[in-house]
Design a protein around this nucleic acid. Structure first.
Lengths: 195, 195
DNA sequence: GAGAGTGATGTCAGTTGCTGACATCACTAG
DNA sequence: CTAGTGATGTCAGCAACTGACATCACTCTC
């Protein structure tokens, strides 16, 4: 047995997602989120630096997963394909089972400029981390940064398509995010190779 | 004669720039900015939506100037050159006389994540506005968005070089921002044309 | 198994960003 | 001269966030 209800962070994330969805980000108070999670406002701020971060904890995991995936990629793989392989891996391990949550989150962010700001800086950070991982494999600049930015762009496009697809949670219809990533990367290659 | 000291907005901008520079963004209070400008906190929030915006009023003028410049560009000019011409125009009219302020501002933003978030979304907005102006000239997607993003990237690179150059306010040393824009655009062309 | 940690949580008080409602002031138009 | 107008001030209040300290439930040690 645990001392308190387990997974306080997860409960806060869920409560925030629900409330932001129900009344909107601005109309939701941190105290309300905490109350719904059975905790206090003070505890919320122990887990998340601010009211926005509660929607971005996952992006830290995405970054970690991506970087590890690049480190583990076969040595000979061209940079963009190392990124592609890593993207497919995180697509399966971090996203596939959570399309509904991803959709909810997407809608909330799209409706709130304050959250879009945060999303932009997270993407920039992500891109920088990927570039760093590539450099550690010996890729030189500006190739590392370009491959990183392209990879992140591919992921964003694929993600958009993925959440835009019809289909409920248990539904197996449509394509997986990993498939869409592969496909989007192929399209990028076609466009850029076309000269 | 004016009823009050003129240029309240400008005084607030200057006071904020000074205080953010002296003690840092976080350690500066809006009330302090207002007091230094000879106004009240309430008046600050009538001119600027929040504590960050006081550093970004200029970016609205940049956007307006850029869009107008694109609209006025000769009809036959290729998209990227229309953007380039407009960039050079705003470089002269909006920036050249203010290198010291630009440098100060740059240092403050670089030191403050909260302000970097805002900068990112301003750049994204700027890019979207430029793409819109290009579309109004008949440029189709995805060419309009690509030219817009490339143009904004060129400007950012040129701006970085410009503020990084030695030289004080009255100093004529170094290159003008417009020259650096032209040069950076040429480099972009060289890189992308190289195939 | 009593007592000393220990880490997660709660409580409380305080600062600051930001807003709405209303008052005031200095000038302008008629 | 008076009414109107737009910029500013005053005041009260909410909500985001923080530091300091208390508490609680469990664990480890002797």
């Amino acid at each position: 047995m645990t001392r308190w209800e387990p997974n306080a962070r997860g409960r806060l994330e869920l409560a925030a997602l629900e409330l932001y969805g129900e009344r909107g980000y601005d109309q939701t108070t941190v105290a309300e989120i905490a109350r719904r999670a059975g905790l206090t406002e003070r505890t919320f701020f122990r887990y998340f630096a601010d009211k926005r971060e509660v929607l971005f904890y996952g992006s830290g995991m995405l970054q970690d997963g991506l970087v590890k995936g690049i480190e583990d990629a076969p040595a000979g793989l061209p940079p963009i394909d190392a990124v592609g392989a890593s993207l497919e891996a995180v697509a399966d391990s971090l996203f596939e089972e959570r399309r509904d949550r991803a959709r909810q989150r997407q809608a909330i962010v799209a409706a709130t400029p304050e959250l879009q700001e945060r999303e932009l800086i997270k993407m920039a950070t992500l891109s920088a981390a990927v570039a760093g991982a590539l450099r550690r494999r010996g890729v030189t600049e500006p190739g590392a940064s370009l491959a990183a930015e392209a990879g992140v762009a591919v992921f964003r496009v694929a993600f958009q398509r993925w959440v835009g697809q019809p289909g409920d949670s248990g539904d197996a219809s449509g394509q997986t995010l990993a498939q869409l990533v592969r496909q989007s990367l192929a399209e990028l290659k076609a466009v850029t190779a076309g000269n």
